Amino acid sequence: MRKVVAGMQMSIDGMIDGPTGYADWVDSWSDTFDLLPEIDACVLGGGMYSGYEQYWSAIKADPRSPLELTGNLPTSEEIEYADFALNTPHYVLSNTLDGARWANTTVLRDAGDVEVLRRKPGKTIYVVGGAQTVSGLLDRGTIDELRLTIHPLVVGEGKALFATVAQRHRLQLSDAKSRPDGTVSLIYSVGK
């Protein structure tokens, strides 16, 4: 069975979005890009798909221009991920989307479809978000590993990553690294 890894960036108080609906404290989305050689499929929620597709398509279209959302130039890792995103199959969990603009994108209607995908031959499946998708797959026992980048910021108001988790989950710390900017990268194995 394929491994399923979820990677998320969050504030120290567990928020993945601030009050404006965006994590304006994240300077670069290259949190788990060291995983790219291991991944051959990505899963994300329908609520996140539009912004995700626009963000990475903008980088691919013009990697030398500041991004509209952040005002920052894309990092070299983000440029690499944009290539990866446009060439890697993506699966969007949604009951409302009729289709997707990216050619390599399939809409899934049920989280159980991720289990079907998991049983097919292939490499690691990367769950890129959002919060409800990560929480739902965690509750189903589908996620094997959580990779969290914790930013040294208390947001106070916003969208909590685990707000919709319905049950307790035991995690085993596999790795922890601090960075000069104060962020901490944590990798947890999820207990079954």
Rank of each mutant, 00 (worst) to 15 (best):
G45S: 05
V43M: 06
G14L: 05
T70Q: 06
E38G: 04
M1S: 14
Y81D: 09
R101H: 11
Y126G: 08
V4W: 02
P121V: 01
Y81M: 14
T124C: 02
V26N: 10
V165C: 14
L67Q: 12
G156T: 03
I39F: 02
P66A: 05
Q172K: 14
K123Q: 12
I16N: 01
D175K: 13
D181W: 07
R109K: 15
W56N: 00
G47A: 09
L86A: 14
D13E: 09
I59T: 04
A61S: 12
L153T: 12
T124L: 08
V92Y: 04
D98M: 08
W56A: 04
K159L: 15
T124G: 00
D40M: 03
G45Y: 00
D27L: 13
D40G: 06
S174L: 15
L161A: 05
L161E: 02
D24F: 07
F33I: 12
F162C: 07
V114H: 04
Q54K: 15
L73E: 11
S11Q: 09
T105R: 05
S65D: 02
W29Q: 09
G45E: 06
L148A: 05
I39N: 03
S178E: 14
V127C: 09
V114R: 00
W29A: 09
D181I: 10
T32G: 01
D31T: 11
D24C: 09
R140K: 15
A6T: 05
T32M: 13
F33K: 02
L117I: 01
L35V: 06
G47L: 08
A131C: 03
G71Q: 12
P37G: 04
D40C: 05
A58C: 02
S94H: 04
D62I: 01
L86F: 05
K123M: 11
A61M: 07
K177F: 11
P66I: 04
I187Q: 12
L161R: 00
K159F: 10
D83T: 11
T32R: 03
V134R: 00
A160D: 05
T133M: 07
Y52C: 01
E78I: 09
L73P: 09
K3I: 02
G130N: 08
S65R: 08
S135R: 03
R119G: 12
K192W: 13
S135N: 05
V184H: 05
E78N: 11
A41T: 04
